[in-house]
Design a protein around this nucleic acid. Structure first.
Length: 255
DNA sequence: ATGGCTATGTAGCATAGA
C-alpha cells in the first residue's frame, strides 16, 4: 500500500503533473491540498481516466482538499465535526482498510497575526478530533501540509527561522501533541538524507540552493507504523516547468 | 536587503501563500 500527499498549489494548473505523477508512482492513495477549486469545478473525469476514485471538499481561490484512491472511499467526512470552519481544510475517508485523514493546516502568516491565532485554535480543535479518530481506528494515517517544521533538522536555516511561523514552539507543541496521541512521523522511522525538505520558496532560487522546509508529513498509527517500509520525498516534480512549491511525500505500508 | 515568485480573481492590482 502506497500512501502519498502533495500540496499542488492549484489543481487546475497542476492537473497534468498530477496525472503524470500518478502514472509514474502508482500510489494507492494520494491526498491533495490547495486544490483551489469549488466542488462543481473539480476534474472528476480526468482523475477517473487516470484510474482513481476521488472525494473532495473545496472552495474558490483558497484551500481545498481531495483524496484520490484506487479503491472507492467510504465514510467520507469533510471538516472537523462540530467546528464550523468555512475554510475547506479537512477531509477524511475509509480507504482500503485504513482511515485516511487529509489535512491542510493554516499557514499562520506570522506569529503576531490573527492568522497565527487561528492556526493554533485550528490545531487544538483538529487534535481533539484526531484523538477520537485514533481511538476508533487502529489503522489511521494522517497526511497533508501541516505547515509545521517539527524540528531544526527540518529547516534549512534554523537560526533565521527560530521562533518564526512554521517553527514556533506552540506550533511544534501542537505537532508533538499529535505524536503523543499515538501517531508517528513515518519519515523519521527511516534514515534520511540531510536537507530533506518538502517546500521551497518560489523566490531566490530557493530549490536549487536547498533552502527548504519539511512541512508536509505522513503520520501513522502504531499498527501502521509497525508495517511501514519506507517514507520518501519525491523532489522530481519540483523540477518541472511551473512546479508546485511543495514536493509530494510517499510512504509504503505493508498490508 | 523585509525584497525576491506564483496563483487567483478580475482587468491593474490586491490577497495569500510559507
Amino acid at each position: 500500500m502506497r500512501v502519498a500527499t502533495w500540496n499542488v498549489n492549484s489543481l487546475k494548473v497542476r492537473l497534468p503533473q498530477v496525472v503524470t505523477w500518478l502514472a509514474s508512482q502508482q500510489p494507492d492513495v494520494l491526498c491533495l491540498q490547495e486544490t483551489k477549486l469549488e466542488d462543481a469545478k473539480f476534474p472528476v473525469e480526468e482523475i477517473r481516466a487516470a484510474g482513481y476514485h476521488v472525494v473532495y471538499s473545496g472552495q474558490k481561490t483558497y484551500n481545498g482538499v481531495a483524496i484520490l484512491s484506487r479503491e472507492p472511499a467510504t465514510g467520507v467526512q469533510a471538516g472537523v465535526p462540530g467546528f464550523d470552519d468555512p475554510q475547506k481544510r479537512v477531509l477524511a475517508a475509509d480507504v482500503s482498510g485504513m482511515r485516511v485523514v487529509c489535512l491542510y493546516v493554516p499557514n499562520g502568516q506570522s506569529i503576531d497575526s490573527d492568522k497565527y491565532r487561528y492556526k493554533l485554535d485550528w490545531l487544538a480543535r483538529t487534535n481533539a478530533w484526531l484523538a477520537g479518530e485514533l481511538a476508533a481506528n487502529a489503522r489511521l494515517v494522517v497526511v497533508g501540509d501541516f505547515n509545521i517544521a517539527p524540528d531544526d533538522r527540518d529547516v534549512h536555516d534554523p537560526k533565521a527561522w527560530e521562533g518564526q511561523v512554521l517553527c514556533s514552539a506552540p506550533e511544534r507543541q501542537a505537532f508533538q501533541t499529535m505524536l503523543a496521541a499515538g501517531l508517528q512521523d513515518s519519515f523519521r522511522l527511516f534514515e534520511q538524507p540531510p536537507q530533506s525538505y518538502t517546500w521551497w520558496d518560489y523566490r531566490m532560487h530557493a530549490f536549487r540552493r536547498k533552502m527548504g522546509m519539511r512541512i508536509d508529513h505522513i503520520l501513522v498509527s502504531g499498527q501502521l507504523a509497525a508495517n511501514c517500509r519506507s517514507c520518501a520525498i519525491d523532489i522530481e516534480p519540483r523540477k518541472n516547468e511551473r512546479p508546485s512549491d511543495h514536493a509530494p511525500v510517499i510512504a509504503e505500508i505493508a498490508t
